[in-house]
Simulated assay, not measured.
Amino acid sequence: MARRYGGNPAAAIILIAADIAAFILILWILFFLLDANRANDLVNWVHHAANWLATWSRDLFTPDNAKWRTVLNYGLPALVYAGLAHLIARRINA
């Protein structure tokens, strides 16, 4: 597994953590866009985890359309986490 994410195990851990964070955020975006049942335990857990991961970016953008607002405010941290993780991992592997 470390080879898939780079040669250094520390870099692999950083990339895996960022991938998980980005996956949770993207999963919440999909649940929201597809009107998933928020009473469902999985949907509820993903929503709370995504809120925690996106604490710094929630309400950063405030368009009138709720779906567009969710894509922006939860998609930005997914991109930031993935981008920073890849920069850090590249630096560690250098």
Rank of each mutant, 00 (worst) to 15 (best):
A39H: 07
L25Q: 00
I29A: 14
T70K: 11
Y81I: 03
L84N: 08
A12M: 09
L72G: 04
A2G: 15
R91D: 04
F61H: 07
D35W: 08
R90S: 07
A50W: 01
L72F: 05
A36P: 02
L72K: 08
I14D: 01
I26H: 12
L60Y: 10
L27V: 02
R3S: 13
L34S: 13
A82P: 07
A11Y: 05
R91T: 02
G83V: 00
L76T: 12
N8T: 10
Y81P: 04
Y81G: 02
L79D: 02
H86Y: 11
N40P: 00
R3V: 13
R90V: 00
G75Q: 08
W68L: 15
A12I: 05
N65L: 02
G6Q: 05
I26M: 14
A66R: 08
I92Q: 06
A36Y: 03
I13N: 14
A50L: 02
I24D: 09
H48Y: 12
P9F: 04
W52H: 13
V43Y: 10
G83D: 02
R3Q: 14
A22E: 07
A66M: 03
I13T: 15
A2R: 15
P63M: 08
A94E: 09
G7H: 05
Y74W: 09
A66L: 05
L33R: 14
V43N: 12
H86A: 14
A22I: 07
S57K: 04
